[in-house]
Design a protein around this nucleic acid. Structure first.
Length: 935
RNA sequence: GCCUGGGUGGUGGACCUGGUAGACACGCAGGACUUAAAAUCCUGUUCGCCUUAAAGCGAGUGCGGGUUCGAUUCCCGCCCCAGGUACCA
């Protein structure tokens, strides 16, 4: 029978499910191997062709590892809390749990039809109470912990309380808020419980802090950055402003150094590690205090402090400071503003409020700022320095204030030029006529006691002086900020906290999970409280619960542990399971998670390690990024008549310059290889029923563009259609054939026929012309063995370096070779089936059975061993160039070696033709082979 | 703006560690088989020039430079595209 992929795929998917073929064992002598995919958010649009890309790669690797004798854990689940389900709920009133469930069912159906070897018995869903019980439990552990810098790990808050009781705050080296108190043991004991708890909150790893959010007054909601476009809400187009709000935060900065160091121990793509390093942004510098000048402006105001603290990485340039810049949100701004400057400053602050942080950073071209009217004093030379505000200084980074050195920093330079502020040269070789020069070479000038010093000495001398006069100290600063952990949303994990006397308290562990309550609407209340405020009777013994929920990343920051022991109701996973599976050996997912999920997960993992809950410091040993699959939109060109109205005539892409046209997105499903199916187009929409076409060589060629895959561009390609038309095996191989796994690329199905043909050819190898099964048991020929062993080596190399696309090409070559050889040898074909099976498992299972093997044993069959003896050739083509250009092809017997080869090459008529009797100037030999002769 | 990645024929891509650029596949063109279609097979296919043909010549991996006997690969500068930029997941 011809290759009937539909029957074959259905049969084997059923078989795998019935026999639980891919269930990972918890006790076995086999070595363990944990292959993890980033679990999907189940969106309403269904699985698109981009999702399976990484899943197919990880599935190939999982199947390959099983063949190599590993006990493979390859699970799948759903990151099922998220904003889109909530937005849909707001619009339709439908409970997010219901739509989420429906979406999951669609995803499962789509995943099943691709033939993945997932162990579905371990499925997790982050929105299920059985699961988020443990997300809440981890939150509680974080709340109950503080970071001891001396031990360099998190510890239970009880050790901190004991220390306070014994010795007060003295000797505590913790990561904590800036405003912690200093007290003795007696003073601590004398504090009220309320005050003690308030103090402890400054040390806890989850804590409350004021942070900025996108606030939309018209909608009465906090908006995600994604929902804000150019200062207006995407939904409704209402203005959005920046607003401060008390929020739960996570002290991820406590782990900044360990997150940096850990990167050196894991096998991740170097660019991704670089992104994390840059995100953490460790910078070594100094903090410097500029005392405020005591003027009439602020003399009679109660100042929060009498100095401005700045952080700088170039403390050596302090004599070049010609002004200070505060972030417009800086706490000192109000009190520093002189009456005559108030209008300017207020106006500027209002402008700033409209911009998001991203817009502020992106807009480096326009120089803007306002003078407060106040001055500060340079601690090292007593110079009077004007204090400005500008939106290029961000409140969240460093101290929210910078010392501006126009000669060394380009932004400061532009600012100084624009507002006519002094630019002071401080290094002898500095060139500052047209732009700032941040050089560290040369010797200092105009710089008092560091004049004549080098960079290194100047830094040391400046810091020493600042410390001596108490105006500054060496400091390490991180760009990374503590992670905001609260969302004013419904569809997320409730925070297991209630409030009493304005202080947060954890609920009892035995009351977990704190289940999300029902609400009448998924919108905030009229007073602007989060949706959970709508829940009736939702309180903890009469005390109000926290009303915000956890962010999307909470549930995904530990899920790989749940797969190890998915149904445990005593712990997030048993000690034995964690002890056995330890960590993820291979993690596949997109690099868009570099500074989100992948950082938060490492953070939580380190915390859990500190608590003794898990055994590894890093959760993901090896990581591979898969590229994003973009949509490829097709366009038709409608001719516009003289009155500017669209006609019903469409012109082929190549001919459209002769007409006035407008481009229309056309459904990519009625276009094949950019050629429009005219009949399908006519029936696509009623208005096109009598469309007319101006064809190019008998065809209508569509225009194309690469865009994000989206419903509204009619360019979403669903794997279902491909699976139905060509089968799962073709889909799997085609997605791999599309290009390197790591590379982003637009989806196109141009080459899918080739992959399908390959599988049919492979099928044909086992059958005669009448589609009857035929294999022979005779000895394989040398040529057959050569083809086989070439592909064994190639595929093994390719899989180990995740180059699946080149494997597929090699398979095509091998099958072409075997077809040419009319190979029907059982031993050869059996090995071919095994090595192809990770890529195209269904067809291989069927052929495995046809070859007389026990059904279903293919998944754990022994992988063929490569034998180099079969690759021996008699001679090889010998390409050399003359003068790096001219190319010659010589055939050299393999029996010759080294000098013999060289002599033979030089004596050959081809080379002699160029040499013309002379000796060559230079002969370049690489790995014992002449590659170039210079004459 | 900043961080990270990418740019090779008509198309997807190959060239892994500096050594024959364009493997493999699609598409296209021509041919075989067939009443026909499907399927299958064969030949050609980077561009330009030259040639009856065989062959030959020149250019060529985003653009401009550099290092090297030799650069798609390494270095410097630029352009364009994609991802991230802290509440999309």
């Amino acid at each position: 029978m011809d290759y009937q992929f539909k029957d074959i795929e259905k049969k084997w998917q059923q078989f795998w499910a019935d026999h639980q073929t891919f269930k990972a064992e918890d006790k076995t002598t086999k070595p363990k191997y944990y292959v993890l995919d980033m679990f999907p958010y189940p969106s309403g649009a269904g699985l698109h062709v981009g999702h399976p890309l990484g899943y197919i790669a990880s599935d190939i690797f999982s199947r390959y590892k099983r063949l190599k004798g590993f006990n493979v854990l390859h699970p799948m689940g759903y990151d099922s809390f998220g904003l889109p389900a909530e937005q849909y709920a707001i619009q339709t009133g439908q409970h997010p749990a219901i739509t989420t469930e429906a979406n999951i069912n669609t995803y499962r159906r789509q995943l099943d039809q691709i033939g993945f070897s997932f162990d579905w018995s371990r499925e997790v869903r982050t929105s299920s109470p059985d699961y988020y019980k443990w997300t809440q439990w981890i939150f509680m552990q974080l709340f109950n912990s503080w970071y001891n810098k001396d031990a360099d790990k998190a510890e239970s808050i009880t050790t901190l309380v004991q220390h306070f009781e014994n010795s007060g705050s003295k000797g505590i080296n913790a990561v904590c808020d800036d405003d912690v108190l200093t007290f003795t043991a007696d003073e601590w004991k004398a504090m009220s419980n309320h005050d003690q708890q308030e103090e402890l909150l400054k040390y806890r790893l989850t804590y409350l802090r004021e942070s900025t959010v996108n606030w939309c007054p018209a909608l009465g909601t906090v908006l995600a950055n994604d929902e804000v476009k150019d200062g207006f809400s995407e939904r409704g187009g209402y203005p959005v402003e920046q607003k401060k709000m008390m929020q739960w935060s996570m002290r991820i900065t406590a782990y900044a150094d360990r997150l940096l160091k850990g990167l050196d121990t894991i096998d991740w793509p170097e660019p991704l590690k670089e992104m994390q390093r840059n995100w953490i942004g460790k910078s070594v510098g100094a903090s410097v205090r500029f005392k405020l000048e005591d003027t009439s402006i602020n003399a009679n105001k109660a100042l929060p402090s009498d100095f401005i603290e700045v952080f700088t990485t170039r403390v050596d340039t302090i004599f070049g400071v010609s002004f200070l810049v505060l972030a417009p949100e800086h706490e000192l701004v109000a009190s520093l503003t002189a009456p005559e400057q108030k209008a300017d400053i207020d106006n500027y602050i209002t402008q700033t409020k409209k911009k998001s942080e991203l817009e502020r950073m992106a807009d480096a071209k326009t120089v803007s700022g306002a003078f407060t009217g106040s001055y500060a004093v340079n601690p090292l030379n007593g110079e009077k320095i004007p204090v400005w505000i500008a939106d290029y200084v961000l409140a969240g980074y460093g101290t929210g204030a910078v010392m501006a050195v126009p000669s060394g920093d380009q932004r400061d330079y532009l600012f100084a030029k624009h507002f006519d502020l002094p630019i002071i040269q401080i290094i002898d070789i500095q060139k500052i006529d047209t732009e700032a020069d941040p050089t560290k070479e040369g010797r200092y000038i105009n710089s008092d006691f560091i004049n004549g010093l080098t960079y290194k000495d100047a830094v040391a001398a400046t810091v020493a002086k600042l410390e001596e006069i108490g105006a500054g100290k060496a400091k390490v600063n991180f760009r990374m900020r503590d992670a905001i952990f609260g969302r004013q949303r419904y569809w997320g994990e409730p925070v297991p906290v209630y409030f009493k006397d304005d202080l947060p308290h954890l609920i009892s562990e035995s009351d977990l999970p704190l289940v999300l309550p029902e609400v009448d609407k998924y919108l905030p209340t009229e007073t602007g409280e989060p949706p959970l405020a709508r829940a009736t009777g939702w309180n903890y013994n009469g005390s109000e619960y926290e009303l915000s929920t956890m962010p999307g990343w909470a549930g995904s920051s530990w899920y790989w542990y749940r797969y190890m022991d998915a149904h445990n109701n005593k712990a997030f996973a048993s000690k034995e399971a964690i002890e056995y599976w330890k960590d993820v050996d291979l993690y596949i997912g997109g690099s868009e998670h570099a500074t989100g999920h992948l950082l938060y997960s490492r953070f939580w993992n380190k915390f859990l390690k500190d608590m003794g809950e898990v055994v590894e410091e890093e959760p993901f040993k090896k990581l591979i990024n898969q590229g994003m699959i973009q949509g490829r939109s097709n366009f038709v060109y409608r001719i516009i008549d003289d009155e500017g109205r669209g006609t019903n005539t469409f012109v082929s892409s190549g001919l459209r310059k002769d007409y006035k046209t407008s481009a229309l997105h056309v459904d990519v499903n009625i276009v094949k290889n950019d050629i429009l199916d005219l009949d399908k187009f006519k029936s696509w929409r009623p208005e096109f029923a009598d469309a007319e076409f101006i064809l190019d060589q008998g065809k209508y060629i569509c225009g194309t563009e690469v865009e994000k895959m989206s419903k509204r561009y009619y360019n979403v390609v669903n794997p279902d259609d491909i699976a139905t038309q060509y089968g799962a095996d073709t889909l799997r191989m085609y997605e791999m054939f599309l290009g390197p796994l790591e590379q982003s690329k637009p989806w196109n199905t141009n080459g899918i026929e080739g992959v399908f043909k390959f599988l049919r050819k492979f099928w044909r190898l086992f059958h005669n012309d009448a589609w009857e099964f035929k294999v022979s048991e005779k000895e394989p020929s040398k040529a057959e063995l050569k083809s086989l062993h070439k592909i064994i080596r190639k595929v093994e190399e390719d899989i180990e370096r995740f180059s699946f696309n080149t494997s597929v090409s090699s398979f095509m070559i091998a099958v072409n070779e075997l077809t040419d050889l009319k190979c029907n040898n059982k031993a050869i074909l059996q090995d071919m089936v095994i090595i192809l099976s990770p890529y195209a498992p269904h067809i291989c299972e069927e052929l495995w059975e046809i070859l007389g093997n026990e059904s279903g044993t293919l998944s754990y069959a022994p992988y063929p061993k490569f034998n180099p003896d079969f690759l021996i050739e008699d001679e090889f083509a010998y390409p050399i160039s003359v003068n790096g250009k001219t190319k010659l092809n010589l055939s050299i017997p393999l029996s010759l070696e080294g000098k013999e080869v060289e002599d033979m090459v030089l004596a050959s008529a081809d080379v002699q033709k160029y040499l013309d009797g002379k000796t060559p100037k230079k002969v370049i030999v690489v790995k014992g082979r002449i590659v170039n002769i210079v004459i």
